[in-house]
Simulated scan of single mutants.
Amino acid sequence: MKIQGRTFAISGGASGLGLSLAQTLLSAGANVAILDLPPKDNPSSSSSSSSSSSFETHPALSTLPKDRHIFIPCDVTSTSAITTAVSHLQKWISSTNLPLGGIIPAAGIGLPSLILDKSLQPAPISSIDFVLSVNLRGTLDLIRQLLPLLASVTPVDEDGERGVIIMVASSAAFEGQMGQVAYAASKGAVASMTLPMARDLSRFGIRVVTIAPSMFESAMTAQLSDKVRKGLEKAMEFPVRAGKPEEFASLAKHAIENPMLNGVVIRLDGATRMPSKL
């Protein structure tokens, strides 16, 4: 599918992998709608705001072309916030006349916690709920609410393709480490729903591809200690380093453009296989 002349919606697009993909798609001629939490220094921005003036910009997006991107504050754990965001996205698409081409739910969170600690205290259910709500429920809710808009697009080629969904799993979906029960559950579920979602959407000409990165440079991995980072490097084959956001973006761009990639989970990990513990 051609990227130029289409609009792509990216949750979690104000940082890390999502931001890098936004930059890549803009460079390829697309418009990009970035759905993310409002900046912390702008409390007046609300994820459920109905005023378009409250989401014209985000500090992290200042270098993006102003006429081809829009920032819409959105908490993906809130169905009503997603509904509001979709409504504003639809209005923006109508004004630009560039139809929706892809949905990329890239918002994610870690919050490591042992399911049972050494004091025999179970992991807080609030922490588990939060991880599942962002990584799994937020992914599904954003997709389901945007799908009617994507499915109504006029097919763009002889195959009848309308668009693509790019989901983000993790190597933890396959080799979750200690403390990653909730995170691995959420990312494993994302990986598992790739094929059935592709089958559900085949009649509409919509493809589904999931990318499962290992350790990549991101806001989440920036919080890792040097000890943990060095321990992770011991599990790496080649290259022995964290992945770069632009490497993720490059694969996502190819997945959008290659019509034969569908219903598949692609590991992006440099042959890394995570050990039980560091």
Score class of each variant (00 low, 15 high):
213 P>R: 03
216 F>W: 07
192 S>A: 08
239 P>L: 05
232 L>P: 07
253 K>M: 11
241 R>C: 11
228 V>S: 06
194 T>L: 01
205 G>A: 05
224 L>P: 02
215 M>S: 13
224 L>W: 15
193 M>S: 01
191 A>F: 04
234 K>F: 13
210 T>P: 09
197 M>T: 03
197 M>E: 02
211 I>K: 00
231 G>N: 05
216 F>Q: 05
238 F>H: 09
191 A>M: 02
216 F>T: 01
199 R>S: 04
213 P>F: 01
232 L>R: 09
228 V>E: 12
230 K>V: 07
243 G>C: 10
233 E>A: 03
230 K>I: 03
235 A>H: 11
248 F>K: 06
247 E>L: 11
253 K>I: 07
232 L>C: 07
209 V>G: 03
212 A>D: 02
220 M>H: 04
226 D>P: 14
201 L>Y: 06
200 D>K: 06
191 A>E: 06
198 A>Y: 02
251 L>H: 06
201 L>S: 00
229 R>E: 11
243 G>L: 10
256 I>T: 05
254 H>Y: 15
242 A>Q: 11
203 R>Q: 15
233 E>Y: 09
232 L>F: 15
241 R>E: 10
214 S>D: 13
244 K>H: 14
218 S>W: 02
227 K>M: 10
199 R>Y: 10
206 I>L: 13
216 F>E: 03
238 F>S: 06
245 P>E: 01
202 S>T: 05
193 M>T: 02
198 A>W: 06
205 G>P: 11
234 K>M: 13
207 R>T: 09
229 R>V: 08
224 L>Y: 14
213 P>D: 00
239 P>Y: 12
246 E>C: 13
220 M>G: 03
224 L>S: 12
232 L>T: 00
212 A>T: 06
254 H>Q: 14
205 G>W: 10
243 G>Y: 09
251 L>T: 07
200 D>T: 10
196 P>S: 00
248 F>H: 04
252 A>T: 11
244 K>D: 10
246 E>M: 01
194 T>H: 04
232 L>K: 02
217 E>Q: 15
235 A>E: 10
196 P>Q: 00
238 F>Q: 10
240 V>E: 12
196 P>L: 03
216 F>H: 09
222 A>E: 13
246 E>I: 08
209 V>R: 02
223 Q>H: 14
202 S>N: 12
196 P>T: 00
220 M>E: 07
194 T>D: 01
219 A>M: 09
221 T>I: 12
225 S>P: 06
204 F>Y: 15
236 M>A: 11
218 S>Q: 07
246 E>D: 15
251 L>E: 06
235 A>W: 13
197 M>K: 00
250 S>W: 14
226 D>R: 05
212 A>Q: 08
208 V>P: 01
194 T>R: 01
213 P>H: 05
224 L>G: 01
234 K>L: 15
214 S>F: 08
247 E>Q: 13
191 A>C: 02
233 E>H: 08
207 R>I: 08
210 T>S: 14
210 T>G: 09
226 D>Q: 12
228 V>Y: 08
217 E>V: 12
206 I>C: 00
235 A>K: 07
251 L>N: 03
191 A>W: 00
209 V>D: 05
198 A>R: 02
255 A>E: 06
235 A>Y: 14
236 M>G: 01
225 S>C: 08
245 P>S: 04
220 M>D: 09
